[in-house]
Design a protein around this nucleic acid. Structure first.
Lengths: 212, 212
DNA sequence: ACCTGAACACCGTTCAAGT
DNA sequence: ACCTGAACACCGTTCAAGT
């Protein structure tokens, strides 16, 4: 089953497909070769080796991460909208994002978003180092949240989950004696979407507040 | 070089050592066997297989994560101190924490800290679902921050780093026309310790503020 | 109960050889 | 310029065999 002519593009596309569907571990040179109908060693001619193949995939992902356009009337609203857009883009490419992160290209991937954040923070009246801090705080918050969130999704069966932990009356009582609503809330799994919005809004409100 | 009697404990200790020093990928059954001076297959008798060995290491780490004792006069201060303690403990065991996370045991690992947070949030006057949200927002913030931060450390050579990106006058100018101090601040690498404190304080201030 | 080596099915990578 | 199979050094795991 010889192919007319194998392209570097074809190799990258097939590799991206494997990663997208089954994660980076599923991307073995041999499986990739089988998928493409070539000998394993042909792949080496086109992309060097496995490491360089992953580098190329990551590079591609970084460039695909388009600029997010802020929406909303106030700077705070617009910052939150950037954060939401960032989260959406990150969640659409979980495996590739993880690889970008492992390779230390996260900052570069976030340049468009960072520029948007700088613009909004500036519009909100922040200047100098304080503006830079605000931008970075939001960036860290968003990326960190998505990492944690993604992790929870991947391993849904936390055993024992918070659920069961707070079902222990002794433990629950020790921390918060008379608040069944609180313990009940902690018993149910967190709603990430809601928690994300709530967290970002809370952070942004403080960062943009007049007094340092 | 037959050993008198191989223990499950010995296997776990050696495995933990390998992971601590060189990361989970360096933990191969064969290297572990060599380290212990036994046949590879002996390990299987004691710990099942590689997966179960990692499970056991993770379980151990979870139990090692002690309770953090809040310090400070106001609830806000005490919450921040819990966050700092959490960050310190996480950073002391980077590889193992990553494994705990991969296995979805993060929530359980954080139970002691969560109870402390519940207590403080309650003391600050928050009740019910809103208190639960505050606890989780802080938890996500801390874990997420450490994940992002750890990642940056592991790959120090961001290429091109923010440094170079903001050195491009056109890009910098488009986002924030007249703030050299801002662009200069973004040119230098972030100070994680400072950014962490700043972020947590900002978040907590909002979460504990009277109006929802 | 505990340990062993042989064997199997997988890896990534190199290299000399083909066209 | 592009592709190939053979070969090497690694994996995790199983299993029958030892004591």
């Amino acid at each position: 089953m010889a192919r007319s002519s194998l392209t570097r593009e074809e190799v990258l596309a097939a590799a991206a497909g494997l990663v997208r569907q089954h994660g980076p571990d599923a991307l073995t040179m041999r499986k990739l070769a089988a998928e493409l109908g070539t000998a394993v060693t042909s792949i080496y001619w086109h992309v060097g080796n496995r490491e360089q193949l992953l580098d190329a995939l990551v590079e591609r992902t970084v460039q695909d991460m388009g600029a997010v356009r802020p929406v909303g009337r106030t700077p705070a609203e617009r910052i939150v909208s950037v954060a939401r857009g960032l989260r959406r883009e990150l969640r659409a490419r979980p495996h590739l994002i993880a690889m970008v992160h492992e390779r230390g290209l996260t900052e570069r991937m976030f340049l468009p978003a960072q520029q948007a954040l700088v613009h909004e923070v500036h519009a909100a009246g922040l200047r100098g180092a304080r503006a830079a801090d605000a931008v970075r705080a939001v960036q860290f918050q968003v990326v960190g949240f998505v990492l944690v969130e993604r992790n929870r999704e991947r391993s849904p069966a936390q055993s024992p989950a918070e659920t069961e932990l707070w079902d222990d009356p002794a433990a629950a009582g020790a921390a918060a004696p008379d608040d069944p609503a609180l313990t009940h809330a902690l018993t149910r799994p967190a709603d990430p979407e809601r928690l994300f919005l709530l967290s970002v809004r809370a952070l942004v409100r403080s960062l943009l507040a007049p007094a340092g």
